[in-house]
Design a protein around this nucleic acid. Structure first.
Lengths: 196, 196, 196, 196
DNA sequence: AATGAATGAGTGTTCATTCAT
DNA sequence: TATGAATGAACACTCATTCAT
């Protein structure tokens, strides 16, 4: 019981620190996200507490990445799986990522900052994995729903398109994400559909 | 003549330092690109020489950005202007940026690292300006060559697609850029063309 | 208790650093008082410890000034308040400052060095405030004990006279401060007394 | 002839640099008066020119001190010599220094900053020499014009009183120096005069 | 007389981390 | 679980000065 209680307290602390990290990274960039800034933001008395709960900065960003990836994975995965046709799944993927970027702005912004900063460089499982997208596209090509194209190129282009939304939101917080998603869906529908 | 000669020496040194900066940033990321690393890479005896030729780190990265932007601007601008139709110009733009990314890998990689690191954050003229692309797209819409779509969304998607190439090259240095460009041209041709 | 104890350790370290700072500034001047010199003098392993206990150099000199000002203020204030007549208070003030300069040579010397170096330039409450002296003089004039003169000029002159003692002590460590004070008291008694 | 011409040009340059040094030191303090700031103020292309005309920083401040001391010495010396009585000479001295401080504000301010900063510390002939004042006071005592007091203390007090004027002027540029001098003359007349 | 290029030592400060409690 | 104290390495940058021309 006591062990469980401690674990709960520790989990809460970790979550608190992770929240602060996400907000600081999203707002000020990864390079500015020092332990000091994070501790200030989380109203901790010292940075020592972060070092205590996380093995190091690598561990902290790993936890951040894992949390965001899990969140978006569950959200988008459910939407995609609800569709049966490749075209529908592609649409669901685009709408899913854009929608998640809209409703979880700090998380998505932080994730991208971390990945692009190179802090997620080596050894770690790439979160910019587009293999799932490639699979959808290849399924569509096999079903003659999609035209012939390089699935890798198309997947990368789709991925970069949806990953651009957090940056757009940073520049214009009032951006209409639903309309943005609709435009992208139409764009990639035309880009992928088989000729008549 | 004497003035030119003196200036030439300084210009050469600046270029040497700038070369080293580009290579270090491209290879190790912006955050690792300390004066010390740059000096080592440029085989300078001390970091002091960098401070002598550049007013500060801001000045150094500004020079880096200016140089790369100028280079790609001239290259792509010439290609685009050689085309007359919006479709041709869009193709030229994509091929131009992808081609430049292929032949000037370090430069492009360094530019993106700097911009994404936030070191090019405020006040500076945004190098991620897509207004020129928007203009091409709007011209095509007026000429009924392109279908109706949001030019801003399309321009951003094109820009992010071509800007992805340096990252692809980092992951796979043997990537066939010409084929990549051809795929993108076809992709965005289908995405933009007017219905028959 | 625990809080006090922890605070006590930090307080002791701060005091140790402050002592070293005072001695270094007094002996070698403010411009020579780098963290390195202070750390050496305090027998600290690195300058990092100073940065740990003080927010910055500004904070360090602020602490120094506050400590010396407080010390002399308490000493002189008590002496002055023990006197009732303006003449007595003026005498107490002169004797007080000169005496404190004699018994706290490093402190006074350091204070003057800091103030004169301009490190205590802007925004900070001026330690060269002579308003308390002016009040004593004006009281004396109202009581007809003192002749008519510009209190500001007289106060400034008294203040500069007593503030000269640390410099005299630096030039001649064996200076008889008691005799010096007696001379100054007689000097300013004659300068201020009302005509018979 | 050519040598003379060169010498003239060099002398002019030295004077120009010295002017700039005085202004920078007076306005921003000695510690801020780096070669860089001086070169900027004198509109020189590089600090190298200063190093060329002066053997080093010591040489530069030595030239500064010499110039100001000479100026004030000539001014005050003439006024003092024009008086015959010790009382008159003391008055002339006070009025002379205060007046010179009023009409040569930057020079006096710079001189004091340099001396007080400790840059004039060792080996150099002390410009804070009060022996000439002591001589005047001793003459007055011998002539029974002045009462009995320690000439050294009185001289130091007079000297510090008049040296305070540049600081007063910095705090209040509209200070009435003539009135200030009159106050000081009366003050020290009463402080020194023999009893009736 | 004057200059651009280059230098080595030094500045205060920030960083993530470890130790002892 | 948590904390105050302490650490060594690195950071960009400034200083007065010297070299070769």
């Amino acid at each position: 019981m006591q062990v469980t209680e401690r674990s709960a307290a520790a989990t809460a602390r970790r979550a608190q620190i992770l929240d602060a990290t996400i907000e600081v990274v999203a707002a000020e960039g990864y390079s500015s996200a020092s332990f000091k800034r994070i501790a200030e933001h989380a109203r901790l008395s010292s940075t020592r507490l972060i070092s205590y709960h996380f093995a190091g900065k690598d561990d902290l960003v790993a936890a951040l990445v894992e949390r965001v990836i899990t969140g978006i994975g569950e959200h988008v995965g459910a939407l995609v799986m609800a569709e049966e046709s490749p075209k529908g799944r592609l649409r669901a993927y685009i709408e899913g990522v854009v929608g998640y970027s809209d409703t979880h702005r700090s998380e998505m912004s932080a994730l991208l900052q971390v990945v692009l900063s190179g802090a997620w460089g080596e050894g770690k499982p790439a979160p910019s994995d587009v293999s799932h997208l490639e699979r959808i596209l290849e399924d569509g090509q096999r079903a003659k729903e999609f035209r012939s194209f390089d699935p890798k190129v198309m997947a990368t282009t789709v991925q970069r398109a949806v990953e651009g939304v957090p940056f757009m939101l940073q520049a214009d917080p009032d951006l209409d994400c639903a309309a943005y998603a609709t435009e992208l869906v139409e764009l990639f529908d035309r880009a992928t559909r088989a000729d008549a």
